[in-house]
Every structure is written in structure tokens, then in C-alpha cells.
């Protein structure tokens, strides 16, 4: 017994302290990444300065750059000396200097137009379409797992053919906004189908959860009856509880959820917390 107790203590002590040890180890992963990031930033800043100012870099930027570059050299040295704390300070100093330079550069070059407006607009639509496609793919993967209504309809193939059509429109310079709107409506409809299907398939579990919850809320409402709470609120709560029970008995779970959100507001006014036990 004594050995078992001692063993338990060792395990518990180890179990308690090991997460903090792991965190410390995690926070110190390869300090050389600091140098790599700082060198990359340094080179990028030099490129930007060469592109914009050639050899006539403004004095204030030059001072900032010298400060940042010196900090990068110091960071390299600190890492060689295994002085991690100083390396961290050098890194932050370097990155702060480069950040200031970049912001000054970006302010002065704000008016430089790199692409035509149409290019930018097409690029924006293309990016939006990429995201919509990923969204459709995500919904389809969920739908496939449950073989639900959306999966068995032709909505997913329609969505993909619309995406293809929009891509063609972008490449030929046509306006795809109408098709994009159609695609968005279609995706919303797919999502609704999937929600309905999920609600049907999970109805038994949700109904059981709901019934337990409503029973407990009912108990709590009875308990607070004599504690000076406004009777109208209690009556309102009781009415809503009855309504939810009726909807659950008819398997109308979505409607029950809507009534429940009303009940939650009333319960909050009464001062009852909603958590089943």
C-alpha cells in the first residue's frame, strides 16, 4: 500500500509538472529562426530601398536601416555566444526598425499603380471564387460522410459547373457578378439542406437532451416561484415550457429551438442559469 501510494505521488508530481516543462521546451524551439527571419527582412528592405530611392536614401530611413542592420549583426553574434535573451532583444529591435522603414516606404509609394483597375478587380473576383470553391468542397465532404439530401441532389455538380463558367468569364473579360450571386444563393441553399438533414438525423439525440433540459428548467421555475420573482415572468416561462414540450412531442425540433431562445431571455430575467446536470 505504501509503495503504491508513493508510486501514485511520483506519477502525479510528474504529471503536474510535465506540461510546464513541455511548454518551456516548446517556447525555445530553434532560436536560429530569429536570425533567418531578420536576414530575410533585411534583404527585403534593401531591395525595396534600391527600387524606390536608388542611391538617394533619405537620412531618417538610413539611420533606421543602420539601426536594424546593426541589430541583425548583433543577433548573429548573440546566437553564436548562446545568449538567447540578448538575441531576442536584438531580433525585436531589428524587426521594429525594418517595420518603421517599410511603413515610411509604403506611405510614400501609396500612389504607385502597379496593375490596371480591371486586373485588380479580376484578381479580387478570382480570389473570392477560390474561397467559394473551397467552401463548396468542404460542404461536399461533410455531406458525403452523411449521404444527406444535398449529396443526393444535383446541387453540388451545378455549383461546380457554375464555378467553371465564372472562371471562363474572368479569363474572357466578361462580367461574372450575376453568376457569382447565383453561386452564392446555391451554396446557401446547399447549406440549408444539410442543416435540415443534420437536424433530422440527430433529432432523437437532440430531443432527449431537450426533454431533460426542459424538465430541469421546469423544476427550477417551480423552486423560484416563492422567492419574490415577478409572477408574469414565471407564467411566461411556464407557457414557453409547455409550448416547447408540445413541439417536441410533434418532433418539431427546429421550432422548439426557436421557442427555447425566447425562453432563455425570460429565464435570464428570472435569474435562472441554463445548464443541464
Amino acid at each position: 500500500m505504501k509503495k503504491l501510494a508513493l508510486f501514485t505521488i511520483i506519477v502525479l508530481v510528474f504529471g503536474t509538472i510535465s506540461p510546464s516543462l513541455a511548454n518551456n521546451a516548446y517556447a525555445q524551439t530553434d532560436p536560429n529562426i530569429l536570425l533567418r527571419i531578420a536576414i530575410q527582412a533585411d534583404k527585403q528592405v534593401v531591395n525595396q530601398l534600391n527600387n524606390i530611392y536608388s542611391n538617394q536614401v533619405p537620412k531618417n530611413i538610413e539611420i533606421l536601416y543602420d539601426e536594424g542592420h546593426t541589430a541583425v549583426n548583433s543577433l548573429d553574434e548573440s546566437l553564436s555566444n548562446n545568449d538567447i535573451e540578448k538575441a531576442k532583444r536584438d531580433f525585436l529591435l531589428a524587426m521594429n526598425s525594418f517595420m518603421q522603414i517599410s511603413r515610411i516606404i509604403s506611405q510614400s509609394s501609396e500612389n504607385v499603380v502597379v496593375k490596371t483597375t480591371l486586373d485588380i478587380s479580376n484578381q479580387k473576383i478570382s480570389n473570392e471564387l477560390d474561397r467559394l470553391e473551397k467552401y463548396v468542397e468542404k460542404l461536399e465532404s461533410i455531406s458525403k460522410k452523411h449521404n444527406d439530401v444535398a449529396q443526393n441532389s444535383d446541387k453540388f455538380p451545378t455549383a461546380y459547373s457554375l464555378i467553371k463558367e465564372i472562371r471562363n468569364q474572368i479569363s474572357t473579360g466578361e462580367n461574372p457578378s450575376e453568376n457569382i450571386n447565383e453561386l452564392k444563393i446555391l451554396v446557401d441553399s446547399i447549406k440549408n439542406d444539410m442543416r435540415k438533414s443534420a437536424a433530422e438525423k440527430q433529432s432523437t439525440a437532440i430531443k432527449r437532451f431537450f426533454e431533460r433540459l426542459i424538465d430541469q428548467i421546469d423544476q427550477k421555475v417551480i423552486q423560484v416561484k416563492d422567492s419574490g420573482v415577478d409572477q408574469t415572468e414565471i407564467d411566461k416561462a411556464k407557457g414557453l415550457i409547455l409550448e416547447i414540450r408540445e413541439l417536441l412531442s410533434k418532433n418539431q425540433i427546429n421550432s422548439a429551438k426557436i421557442v427555447y431562445s425566447e425562453l432563455k431571455v425570460v429565464l435570464k430575467n428570472i435569474g435562472i442559469s441554463v445548464r443541464i446536470t
Partner: peptide, 30 residues
Amino acid sequence: QGKLWTFYLDSPSDFKLLLPQNSAIVGMTN
């Protein structure tokens, strides 16, 4: 702003951030 992109987040936990292709970090605060 101009050509400079700035990402800002106040995160409740540690997180992973994948930057776009061909992007080069030129400043960070932590």
C-alpha cells in the same frame, strides 16, 4: 497600405500562421 500588408491579431492561444507565397516579412512585434 501602399505595397505593405499588415497582419494583426490578438489571439487567445498559440497559433500557426501560413503566409502567402512570395511574401517576405519585414517587421514583427513579437
